[in-house]
Design a protein around this nucleic acid. Structure first.
Lengths: 192, 192, 192, 192
DNA sequence: TATGAATGAGTGTTCATTCAT
DNA sequence: GATGAATGAACACTCATTCAT
């Protein structure tokens, strides 16, 4: 019998709401999902949601923040065990692919709802995205590369290819980790 | 400045409509654009559009078809002058990047409105996309590569990275051609 | 080989249009049928109909007129051979049932589109209906009946029952003529 | 003058809505009445109706159900006091005519909006109509009639004539009860 | 915290009709 | 006689949001 009195229930409806919103935004996109859709998914009336979130945009912003938190934490955790620069980059890419393709609707939202789609809050969304991606800038900076390799292109290529993978990913043809490994292998062959 | 006196007027409103739809779908996404938005953009009443297109979905389908036509024609033209496998792939990537980032709203639509976003016609949309991408499968097949290189991963990586570039592309930091060249260079170093 | 040069073609598109309108009005009702529906049925564009009929209401009016013409002609023909009052009434009822249930969409329109449904021309429609029904008033007047029989009720009952039959008529359970005969028999038993 | 202070307010707008819909459907027919018409009649915005009824079809279905309820209840009440078969039939016919012609817009809807007019819900509508009409089948079964009288024709004639009466009924020329009495009298003379 | 009930603007779409060609 | 193209109003319906209870 779980002790429901001790543990502070601290807004668990808010979390259900956020989960439902993330799942629906990730699957159908921000504009194709209505507040009613989300409410129905958590067994709540539409009006009731406004106690928890003042607007649909705020709901998106909150999923974004949670998504960045999850991505960052997951990648940071993966980095904790690695020292060698290439190993560190590979660990980050694997974590990125896994959370994106497998684990978190929140992460999907960040990569499928673009700031420009929601003009009113695009200024709030962009820094969240960028803050996360900075990790990869640093990881690539640390790589021992030939002098003429453009590290900026490398980062954009690697992250772009990984992010786009959600458009073709099919669990039957390799795990997220394998996808990350394969891509990195292609680049690593010569760049070292 | 279009020459309205010389050009035969036949059905030019349909094309205006298609152009406006492509531009708006590319910029804001399918669901964020209303039929009224498109109508306003061409100076037409909302109801009048239905003479030219029976539904919003059909309008999207028509932009998709035109987009694929433009992409294919542009890439095929670029390939006509090249014989060497790597040169052919590079020409195709440059054409792809240019039309995507610079030249055509129609191409953008194909890469930013995903079939799954419009369930009712996703079965019509998918083959159009796939038909175009087959070109790259063939180009990569023709490359002289070390035996252990996974050509499938290579294709997915290259196209994914290029397609994602519309999310960060800024004309001040290099032309579309340069982006394509840079990315290909990163891969080519070792794979040959 | 029919001689199409001799016979004046005299507006045969107009007749096609009228036929299609009658069929559709009879089946779905006036308000549920659009001008486009009718146009499509005769392979014409909606705008083209306005050469033949200035408005949808006029089209209805024309079907009404033709319906009354057909009903009247059919009933008058049936009466031509009969002299005895009851036989005359029975002949009229049979003709009425047959044309209503079997033969003419125009007749159906008159009995399923009510003047009040189209307020703007209800004043034009009502006299058409009434003019036809007068025949039955006269036929019933001629019957040799007991003094206390209300001929007005008789007429309303008989015609009402016949008109309503289109709501339950099923060709498998008796022909229109049988329906008319059965109903008249019920009344005739005692009234003579 | 409704007592708004005493009556519990619970869901009274739904009933107002249903009343207005019944009145308008009865007068103009289903297709000729718009949701805006109904909303205007109860002083509500069109969108607000959808809180109470999910669609126009559902609104019709609800009026149908209420109409059948009212008809059935009224007829059953009238039958409660009668034992003799002819008296029972006459009581039912009087009640039927009164509620149809005088008392209830809901009953009118059932007899003027035909299931086939609203294809999408015709399967829901038909059994409601039929369920009510079964009462008359039973009443006529109980009549002591000559062996050669077709009870089926009798039922169809009687109900058809009564139902059609709404097309000519004018309160100045006799009450609904008188209409029912007169019609039954015509049939009863000989059939006994 | 949540509900019932509403709002006002907006959605995609259809309507009868017009008219230059 | 008919078409291509449009109009403007209306259609059924959905939207994000509000607020008294």
């Amino acid at each position: 019998m779980p002790d429901t009195t001790r543990a502070p229930r601290q807004d668990n409806r808010r979390i259900q709401l956020l989960d439902a919103a993330a799942a629906l935004f990730a699957e159908h996109g921000f504009h194709a999902v209505s507040m009613r859709d989300i409410a129905r998914n958590v067994g709540m009336l539409p009006g009731s949601m406004y106690y928890h979130f003042p607007s649909k945009n705020d709901l998106l912003l909150a999923t974004y923040e949670e998504g960045v938190r999850q991505l960052s934490q997951r990648v940071d955790l993966a980095l904790a065990d690695e020292d060698e620069p290439w190993a560190r980059l590979e660990a980050a890419c694997k974590a990125h692919a896994e959370i994106l393709l497998n684990e978190s609707d929140y992460a999907q939202v960040i990569l499928s709802v673009f700031p420009r789609d929601v003009a009113a809050i695009s200024d709030n969304l962009k820094p969240l995205r960028d803050g996360y991606e900075d990790r990869f800038r640093i990881l690539i900076e640390a790589l021992p590369l030939a002098a003429d390799v453009d590290r900026n292109s490398l980062r954009l290529m690697l992250l772009g290819a990984l992010n786009w993978s959600k458009n073709w990913y099919n669990p039957r043809h390799g795990s997220p980790r394998e996808i990350a490994t394969d891509m990195l292998a292609l680049l690593k062959r010569s760049l070292v």
